[in-house]
Amino acid sequence: MATYTLDINNTEHTVEVAEGTSLLWVIREHLGLTGTKYGCGIAQCGSCTIHIDGTPTRACIMGVDNLNEGQKITTIEGLSENGDHPLQKAWIEAQAPQCGYCHSGQLMQAAALLEANPSPSRDEIKTYMNGNLCRCGTYMRIVKAIELASEEQIATS
């Protein structure tokens, strides 16, 4: 067992777990931030996508001890103050989720995309989002929501 202090959504959390415990289990099971989901455990589905210093990362394959001092983690709970990130609003407008299980990860991946590329083409969206699986088949609406959010952000910036 070892003690780790993590900066998640601008709050410090201390947790005592075995070395090598995945960041996903730390976030979900120890700290109760359960918006981040487990889907495959081998970085094939993207359900557990979080940001580490803004970079989209699969929490399932990241050991808690692989984090560097001072790195900032953002989860779906910290994407916006009141669930009002342009992507979250666009997601509702497009009625994107069905079962919704993969959508925390989809949103976190999409948020990183718009951060890096505020007006992505449809092909750029598909390429950037390709690592995030959705079994309900909501891909069409996710693409639409990302395009809506991109247009909205550009119109208001």
Partner: peptide
Amino acid sequence: EIPVKVDGSAQFAGDLR
């Protein structure tokens, strides 16, 4: 139920603690 599915608060059984 869409709003709780975009902010991570929708509760699935595995989220229970």
